[in-house]
Design a protein around this nucleic acid. Structure first.
Length: 122
DNA sequence: GGGCTGACCTACT
DNA sequence: CAGTAGGCCAGCC
């Protein structure tokens, strides 16, 4: 209870990190989905900011968060862009033409897989 | 107190 | 499929 001395502004970011930490390995979530799961459907932009503030001590899988286009939103200028792509590939995510198939690795695809309890190609 | 920025999204052309 | 326009909201100057 003493570590929570951060300003209330950063409090919303905490919820975002919590949702991101809930993303299963081998799956990705879009900023809009994460924002909606965090309770702020219009906060897609806020999520991006939260990723930037995500401290390493939290081990937040920020690399599992991508944009609605299924592509990495980090500018190629940043070394993290290359890092994220490698991280996802390590998790089992496949990049097609530089994009990720949200139909398979997206949240909706994850639920479908859990309900059907089988591989995606069906 | 006001205005610009941004790891975005959705919709239309 | 690619490009453009509008919206949305917190952080920073």
């Amino acid at each position: 209870m003493s570590e929570n001395k951060a300003k209330p502004d950063r409090n919303w970011a905490r919820q975002v990190w919590k949702v991101v930490c809930d993303i299963p390995p081998g799956h990705v979530l879009t900023y809009g989905e994460v924002a909606r799961l965090s309770g702020m459907p219009r906060a897609a932009r806020r999520v991006s900011q939260a990723m930037r503030w995500a401290p390493r001590s939290m081990k937040v899988p920020w690399h599992r968060v991508i944009n609605a286009q299924g592509k990495i939103s980090i500018p190629a200028d940043s070394p993290w862009h290359k890092k994220q792509k490698q991280m996802l590939q390590e998790e089992g995510v496949v990049f097609l033409r530089g994009k990720v198939d949200l139909d398979k690795y997206g949240y909706q695809g994850a639920v479908d897989r859990l309900l059907w309890g089988g591989p995606v190609g069906e």
